[in-house]
Each structure stands twice: as C-alpha cells, then as structure tokens.
Design a protein around this nucleic acid. Structure first.
Lengths: 333, 333
DNA sequence: TATATTTCATATAACGTTTCACACAAATTT
DNA sequence: AAATTTGTGTGAAACGTTATATGAAATATA
C-alpha cells in the first residue's frame, strides 16, 4: 500500500501499467518503446498524475534542466530585461532558472559559480565583473558582454556599430560638436567598444568630439560639473551628447534641464540600451536599442544545443536606433 | 582510485578522514559529533574542497534549500525590486531562488506551482493572478498582495493607509478637487484597498473626489480621454491626482504635459510604489513608497522560520510618502 | 565485581531515478 | 531445421545523501 500523501513514483506507474520500471523511464525520456507498452504507460502516467522527481533525476543523470543566471541585479532595466527574456527562452525549452543576483560582488560571483556547480546546473549564463572568475571546464558557461577566453562563448550587441550609429544619427540631425559620456570600467568588456565606434563615426562624419570618462567619485555630480564647465554665455559647448547607457542619459537630461538647455533644441541626446521601463510605452529618450530578446535566445540556444563542440567565441547581434524625443529627427540644423 | 573529473563525495571525505560515512553527514549537518572526529572531518572537507551535492540531499531529505518565486515579470520596477530584495533575503539564509516569470498567465502560474512541487522546493512565494490557483497543502506558500485563504499568509503594504496618506498629502498641499485613477482588476487583491483608503482620506479632509477605473481598452488612451473630458477653458477640473501606481503616474504626467498642464503648479500628482528605476537616483514622481525590502524579508522569514504553525494570515507593512517633484510640498495654495 | 545505563561511531537501508547487462522471442540466415 | 542475428522489455546496480538500527566502549548503579 502506498503512503497517502507522497507523490507517485515511477514504481507506482510501472505497477499500474503492468510493465517494468525501466520501461516507464524510457517512455518518460522519449526513448524507443513498443507502441502498446508506450500507450499503457502513458495512460498510467495520466491516471496517477505522475511527474518525475527532478532531484532523483539530477542525482543519477547529468541533466538537471536547470540553468543559473548570474547578473548584477534585477533593478537596472537592461538587466531586468535580460532576466525576463532569458526566462522566456528557458521556459520554451522547459528549462528552469536559478537566479543569482551578484550586486557586482566578485566574491559572490565566485560563490555562485561554486554553488551552481554543486547544484549540478546544466550550464551558467553570466554577466559578471570579476576579472579572475574561475569557471571549471565541466560546467558550460555563456558570457554576456564580456570575452572570457576562446573556450567561453560571449554574446553581446554590436557595440562598435552602435557607437558608430549614434555618431551618424547625431551628424544626420545636424550636430557638429558632440561629447561621449561614460563611467569607467577597468574591465575590458564588450560595451567599451561603444567609445571606439563613436570615435570612428565622428571621424567619418567630421564631428568634433570630446570624451569624458568618469572613473570614480559621484558620477551624477561629476558629469554635471563637466557640463557646467562647458557652458559659455549660457550656452552649452556641445550640440550632441552620446551617453553610454539610457540610465546615464536620463541623469544627463536632468542636468541639462537644470542648466537651462532645451532638448533637443539646444542639444540632442542619444542613450544606449533601449529598454522600455514602463510597460510597453514609448522610449523616454532616443537611443541605440540592444536586441535583448535575441541576446537571450542566443545565450540559451548556445547552452542547450546538442552540439556543444564548435561554439563561436563571440556572437555580435545587430543594434538599431529608436527615436525617443531627445533628437531632432532630420529637421536640419 | 577516484575518477579525475568528478566532485568529491562524502565517501571520499570519510576515507580521507578515516571515519564512517554517517559521521561526515553529521558534521556537515551540524549534528553532535565528538570533537576529535569533527576536527578530522572538517580538515578533510577543507582539503578535498568538498561540497554537498544538493540533488542527493534533495532526494533523500525534505529540505532542498530552494524557494520558487512566482511573479508576473521582472520588467515592472515594483516586481523587479521584489525579485531583487527577495533574492537578497534568501541569500542571507543560504537559500536559492528558482525564478518563475508568469506573464499574468493563469495556466503558467498553475504549471509553475506543479513544477515547484515536482522540484521539491521548500516553499513558494507568489504574486499571482489566477483566482483558482490550486496549491497543495504540502508546499508552504506565501502570497504577496493577495489573500488566498486563512491558511496562506499574505504579505502586503498597508494599501488602505497608503490611499489615506495620498489624500492627506494632497489636502495638505492645498488640493480641493482630486481624482483617483486606476485600471481594473477583477481580482480582489490587497492593492484594491488603495481606493477605499483614498476615499476615506478625501472624506475626512473634505476633498471632492472622482474615481476613474478603466477595465478594458488601451489604459493610456482611456485616461488621456478622461483628462481631456475634464478640461474646461484650458484648465483641468482637478488640482490633484492620485495614481494607483508610479507606472500609471508617469503616463499621466505625459498626458498632462500634452494638455499643457503644469505639474505641480496646475495639478499635483502622487503615485504608488516608490521603486526607483534608475540606480539609486531620486524619485521621478511624488509617491507612496512600499517597503519592498521589508516585504521581501517578511516573505522569506515566514517561509523559512522554524515554527510554521501559527502563521499570521495577513501581514500589513507600513508605507511612507516621498517627494518626487510632482507635488508642491507645503507651499500653500 | 557484575549488571544496567548511557554515549556515540558505524554500517546499512532507503530516496526515485537512469543505465546496462541480460533474457527471451521473433526474424533472418545458412 | 538448426544456428545466428535482431529487437525489446526486464530488473538490478548505482548515483550521493540522510536516517535508523546496531553494537562497542565508557560510565553509572547495585
């Protein structure tokens, strides 16, 4: 007699269907089984409402159908969006997600990697900042926005092209003297290429361009001081600003308002990310849009695909420009 | 000889320390073990860098140290914030989080509950919308913002008090004719009490108050039409608006701008949630702040506490008011 | 001193899967 | 018609834990 309260096991299904344990396992895992047997087992599964115990499965087999996602937090819109779309992509493949919010903490990142290994996750997707992160070869790892060696695929937007695009758009919309604003990162990650792309674009279109990179201090204040220093007779030195992220762009917009600068009349602003924060509403600033759904899909696909051998070391996905009210859209200067 | 690539097991530790398997288990689980033995085992654990296999653990024991979080998405700031703080609270207790993004889909919610059960999670925290959600008694469940019966604790902000507070603040800041805006929800959940609280507050302070509740259609457009209908000679009928969420408040602010209304000069706006979207920057609208860290902590505490017996059916946590530029802060009207 | 009690490490049996050698029957070959 | 191959369901072993019964010391009781 079966205990009342416990979930049915394969053994129960086998008894109900009058077949062997191994046969049930095969049916559950989609391995070849004779038609009659298969039908009997499936009937029994339905009748008992059987579900595999993933812990037993994880113990015996190597597959746990679980992926760990390492991400600094879920608050920043870009990260939140990644979490959302990666979750979706995993769901589609019946994978589960173990969320590891790292808060940019190197130790925590490393701990989570250990934990992921201990938990025998099938793989890890990580947007990490620990330059010395040790990942054991056994657990597949997909990096986002950071190249971690030839064996570890990195999925990212085409940041260089994004920078170029921003320069081109500003040029198209009549800017002549532009600035690039970003906060520092000692880490050599992919998003850093936005600067090079922007420089390249400015050069190609003959824009004069000033770079301002904050490494420490209060970024918000530092940038405001920078802008203030570039005011001449109540007018800003620049007619276009490219911000490394939308988050920064929103800060800058506030500073510009304080300084009495009209956007996009006096100065145009382009951000980067294109994550809409409030429902599916319009963009709140003109921006270079990262293809987050595609990035998510690619990460999950690389992690779950059959052939893990020949994985590309770097996957760059195309970005696009979106209007969000802070550019003048072709009204010539 | 041990296989090169596989992680050390308890058996390895036992051999290394020269003790029995069960002894290692006791040390790992903090059960009483003689001092000398304990020291030997701990030394071996360190030497081999042993970590328990949580799948074996989950199979045998009932504790999996994993909690499932059911939440509509990770994009809405309030949800993103909940995910973040619940993750933190779980981390503190060395629990893991299985993230289940439901997209308001009733079937998906039910599926995730089944999956959580199958995965033997220690408990579920759920902000769900399926009115018929079936949760089996065996898996502890903590509901956020929705009362699901006496046996299931519900953690929420004091929504009624929040509504009252909004009314009081608007009254304090000189408003006389105010409106409450919200979209419909057939579900009787806790946030619905914001309306009653606001009505109550308006009554107490003698504010005339109009309720506008959208049930279907495009909310953004519906509300704009509502506001437009209340324009008289280029002036809005109201001098104060309470929006059921900050997200809505931001929409309304845009509509007001379109209608040429100055905020907070012509009309003051208060939202609800108080989740800062961009880093830790200032609030972007005046709002009633939900104590998200405390809500998260309470959910996790209720789920992980020793004594699961006498759990409160409803926990209401206090809200507060925060200035965000869309109210006139005591400059009397 | 002999017996009863306590203490505590040990060994063994689950937990619910997957895997794999095995057996048995049917189909094919010689 | 006998021998071989092929196909396919079976049942036991193993995965790494935890829990429980066991038994050997050590201590207390008579």
């Amino acid at each position: 007699m079966k205990k009342e309260n416990s979930a049915p096991t394969m053994k129960d299904v086998a008894r109900e269907a009058g077949v062997a344990l191994g046969t049930v396992s095969k049916v559950v895992n989609g391995l070849p089984v004779g038609e009659t047997y298969k039908a009997r087992v499936e009937e029994a599964i339905r009748k008992l409402n059987y579900q595999v115990n993933s812990y037993a499965q994880g113990l015996k087999a190597s597959k746990t159908h679980t992926v760990a996602l390492l991400i600094p937090n879920t608050l920043e819109p870009f990260y939140a969006s990644l979490v959302y779309h990666i979750n979706l992509a995993l769901l589609k493949r019946k994978y589960r997600m173990l969320l590891c919010s790292t808060d940019y903490d190197s130790n925590l990142e490393q701990e989570y990697v250990a934990m992921a290994k201990q938990n025998k996750v099938d793989g890890i997707i990580g947007l990490t900042y620990n330059p010395d992160l040790i990942i054991d070869e056994a657990t597949p790892f997909i990096a986002i926005d950071r190249s971690m060696g030839p064996k570890i695929p990195c999925v990212t937007s085409d940041n260089f092209a994004g920078g170029q695009l921003a320069a081109e758009k500003l040029a198209d919309f009549g800017c002549r003297r532009v600035a690039f604003l970003r906060w520092g990162s000692s880490l050599t990650n992919e998003p850093n290429k936005r600067k090079a792309g922007f420089e390249n674009g400015c050069l190609a279109r003959g824009l004069s361009c000033e770079m301002k990179i904050i490494n420490d201090g209060e970024p918000y204040k530092e940038f405001e001081d920078f802008l203030t220093a570039h005011m001449k007779n109540g007018k800003l030195d620049f007619d276009g600003i490219f911000c490394v992220t939308d988050t920064l762009a929103h800060d800058i917009l506030k500073s510009l308002e304080k300084l009495g600068q009209k956007v996009p009349g006096d100065v145009q602003v382009i951000g980067f990310d294109g994550t809409r924060h409030f429902g599916n509403k319009a963009y709140t600033c003109s921006t270079i849009v990262q293809p987050v759904p595609e990035i998510a899909e690619m990460c999950v696909e690389l992690l779950t695909q059959e052939n893990m051998r020949a994985r590309p070391p770097l996957v760059c996905l195309p970005v696009s420009y979106a209007y969000g009210g802070t550019t003048s859209e072709g009204k010539d200067a």
